[in-house]
Nucleic acid binder design. Structure first.
Lengths: 195, 195
DNA sequence: CGGCTACTATGACCGCTGTCATAGCGAATG
DNA sequence: CATTCGCTATGACAGCGGTCATAGTAGCCG
């Protein structure tokens, strides 16, 4: 992981802590400490306060997820919608089996904690989902899914993944994730064959 | 809604506030006020503190969701898996269109906020998901879904619903929910015809 | 050198949180 | 009546939260 400036490190750390403990339980001082950044830099880089930091963390997470899609496609010998979804799921099962169920999706955490209280964060979360859905939908189109269904199927994939993530974390068991991948794959692949 | 005792009202209010603002942002005093219950009753009925109250709220939500399944089935002229799922989704779209996107699923909120920090709450969330998945799976069995697939499909349904809920709330648009219902129905109904 | 800009350092403030301690009420019970 | 028990009432406490104010440093520019 490259050695970025303190500002980026704080955003990254914020995302990491938020996905662990939620937005409300994550303190600013904690973020600075985790990023090994000086506390005084907080008000310098984020004059908008916690709200700004959280929003940037959410945005970062959305962009990160969107960028991963290309990598998943590259990793597949022959790209199929079901294969892409399996790869998206596998990223999480891998993490959970490797380091435990400590973290969920930071965008989900922000939505749960701030959707009603903080309008800007809710919008940041919506934007993050969009930044994630977009590349997935484009990938589906490249695999032969009819244009009018790509957006809907991408939303379905991410919905299912997010929900399975929640259940897996509650149960501390990847079962829900693997089930989602297995059950959804046929539906996704069928949509690609209708061209 | 029936006029219960103060204890039940507090549990109910806790669930309601949690699904709005998350666990961490929901104060005990706030719960008592919302339930119009005396503050002194908190430590009387919930000697285990906030943790106990939250866990009971989560348990209540799980039982509530499980009980709704029977009602949904009764409301369907001819029960089908896709129809059941549509009904589950409709409960949420109805609420969102009627009173706005103020609340999500309290179990999801508890999972996001407490999965890592509070073991007992994580277990309560897992139990709540189980109390929800169980009736759904049984309903699927009654509709002719092979026994070995009922649990998996029930998990898939709830995963997708939970995820779509998150996205809908972030976007303040029921689109993700209606999409989930529309796209998943064929897959679910196909499973019922394989007996 | 003087000054300006970017960044860091700290301490204080105020509000809120969960929890505890203590005392009070009111009715049923013996 | 006296006791007990279920429930309520309040105030205090200790801790932590985000934020602000203020001052300091380091380095570049002119």
């Amino acid at each position: 992981m490259s050695e970025r400036g303190p500002r980026e490190r704080m955003v990254f750390s914020a995302a990491q802590l938020i996905r662990r403990d939620g937005v409300a339980s994550t303190g600013m001082r904690e973020v600075a400490a985790h990023a090994e950044a000086p506390r005084g830099s907080l008000q310098h880089y984020f004059p908008g306060g916690k709200e700004q930091l959280v929003n940037e963390a959410v945005g970062w997470a959305g962009r990160y997820a969107g960028n991963r899609v290309a990598r998943f496609l590259a990793a597949l010998p022959e790209p199929t919608p079901g294969g892409l979804f399996a790869e998206m799921v596998r990223q999480w099962t891998d993490e959970y089996e490797r380091v435990g169920f400590g973290g969920g999706c930071p965008v989900a955490a922000a939505t749960v904690d701030c959707a009603e209280s903080t309008a800007s964060t809710r919008e940041a979360a919506a934007a993050a989902f969009a930044a994630w859905t977009g590349p997935v939908a484009r990938a589906l189109a490249d695999m032969g899914v009819p244009e009018e269904r790509t957006a809907d199927l991408a939303t379905l994939m991410i919905s299912t993944l997010e929900g399975a993530l929640l259940i897996a974390r509650a149960e501390q068991d990847v079962r829900a994730l693997t089930t989602a991948a297995r059950e959804l794959a046929p539906l996704l692949d069928a949509a690609a064959r209708t061209r």
